[in-house]
Design a protein around this nucleic acid. Structure first.
Length: 428
RNA sequence: UCCGGGGUAGCUCAGUCGGUUAGAGCAUCUGACUGUUAAUCAGAGGGUCGUGGGUUCGAGUCCCACCCCCGGAGCCA
């Protein structure tokens, strides 16, 4: 049996194919079956006079998504989508499908998510997930190429991270445990061992967010680099994001075309990305009439205004201390702020990266933990990293689904993960 | 949690001012057709109008409560 993607090598030859019926069309004495085998689709043509009665009967019994085994000749034909079709000599039903719920027509979101296990087969979903797979592979290739060591961080953790209210709690042999909402503290621990490291895995946030930018389970890439300051960090981010876009453009041309993505908006994505400090951003927002005050975090509308004037991702750096996490390093030039950055994707896709230089001073870090009223005992091992050979270091987290949503131009990130976990959705 | 929109056939939706037996397209089934591209044509079957209560001679339609879904805000990647 061969795969549909390699049909071009077999023109004029008889081949065996196996796959799922996308649609069939009968015309009395000639009939068409569009077959999908996971590597592509091809139209199979049956002429009643030229096939045996068993094959014709098999065709007539076919339902959408039934599995068939087809033998036939590969022909180049301009009338066929893709340029090739199969002149069928024999067709067998291997698995007759019950009436298939998803039709080639518009469906509602709720219905499609209820049938996510079947929706995966649809062409736009396949295209989006193919781009995701390419981007994920590119993540590993990028870091491998730069000498980073992959560190797999735990998913079951004690009380660490940022805010206990957004953690999923579970029972761990009678003890309280939480699903990780970041691997950062662990990759920081791995820095003295490997210098440049990254983790890549699922992240869990129990936020009650119902927007197209949020999932309760999403995948995040978190590099951490010893001796890197905040500027180094931003340079790594723009190199990294540019590489991910480049790889998608290089290897997912067909998928992006199917998704009707305007790739001209991606082709110029390369370093350097524009940068604006938080303080300058506030000034600019006030100049256009926003009522935002220095000290509060940027809202979605503010981000929209800032990114509108750029066709590249935009860095907003050095936010006020009170708007950011305890582990970020104080800015020596303006102690009201911390050395950090958010990377905002263009076209309204929002924040795809949050990064910072980490506080490496033991006393200041301990002070910040107390200010935030975090359980100090749970962080004692993290403070050890400052006791036993502290060092300047920086890192960031990139959200895979948001990044892929931007690259593919899909509106909602739930389509860019095979089985999305949302506030009200744990199945399928 | 707050704000807005919604729930009618398997699916996507229409349903006027409260008024006879609740409609269409697609899907399914039957039939016709030798080149279709979400094929077309003819016919058939298919309904607890989200749930509960109320107003009324009469409720899919009006009122109240609740449930569920979608989008947005906040929070974040």
């Amino acid at each position: 049996m061969i795969e549909i993607r390699e049909l071009g090598r077999y023109v004029g030859e008889a081949v065996d194919l196996g796959g799922w019926v996308e649609t069939k069309r009968g015309h009395g004495k000639v009939a068409f079956v569009v077959l999908r085998d996971g590597t592509g689709s091809v139209q199979c043509v049956l002429v009643k006079k030229q096939v045996d009665p068993a094959t014709w009967d098999a065709f007539e019994s076919l339902t959408q998504e039934s599995v068939v085994l087809v033998t036939g000749e590969v022909r180049a034909d301009e009338r066929a989508p893709g340029g090739f079709e199969i002149g069928v000599s024999s067709l067998k039903v291997a698995g007759l499908a019950a009436e298939y719920p998803i039709q080639p027509k518009e469906h509602g979101v709720d219905f499609l998510l209820d049938h996510r296990h079947l929706w995966l087969r649809s062409s736009l979903q396949r295209a989006g997930l193919m781009v995701r797979a390419e981007v994920e592979q590119a993540v590993h290739d990028f870091f491998y190429g730069r000498g980073f060591v992959r560190i797999d961080t735990p998913i079951l953790t004690g009380a660490i991270g940022e805010h206990a209210g957004t953690l999923f709690e579970t029972d761990y042999f009678g003890e309280r445990a939480f699903l990780a909402q970041t691997g950062q503290l662990y990759v920081e621990a791995a820095c003295p061992a490997f210098r440049k490291v990254y983790c890549f895995g699922p992240t869990f946030r129990a936020e009650k967010s119902k927007t197209r930018r949020h999932l309760t389970e999403f995948w995040m890439v978190e590099p951490e680099v010893a001796f890197a300051d905040s500027d180094d960090n931003m340079r790594l981010q723009e190199d990294f994001v540019s590489y991910l876009v480049e790889r998608a453009l290089e290897n997912c041309r067909e998928e992006l075309a199917l998704l009707e993505r305007d790739t001209s908006r991606l082709e110029h994505v390369r370093p350097p990305f524009p940068r604006i400090s938080y303080t300058d951003a506030i000034g600019r927002l006030k100049a256009v009439g926003s009522e935002i005050e220095w000290g509060s975090d940027l809202g979605a509308a503010d981000e929209q205004i800032l990114t509108e004037s750029y066709d590249l991702p935009l860095f907003v750096y050095n936010y006020p201390k009170q708007a950011k996490a305890f582990y970020m390093k104080e800015n020596p030039d303006d102690p009201r702020t911390v050395l950090c950055d958010d990377l905002l994707a263009p076209e309204g896709y929002g924040e795809i990266i949050g990064g910072s230089q980490r506080e490496d001073d033991l006393d200041r870090l301990r002070e910040r933990i107390r200010e935030e009223e975090l359980p100090e005992a749970a962080y004692s091992w993290y403070l050890d990293l400052r006791r036993y050979g502290t060092f300047p270091h920086s890192g960031f987290g990139l959200g895979v689904e948001r990044t892929v949503a931007w690259i593919t131009g899909r509106r909602h990130i739930r389509e860019l993960i095979p089985f999305p976990r949302l506030m009200n959705r744990l199945f399928p």
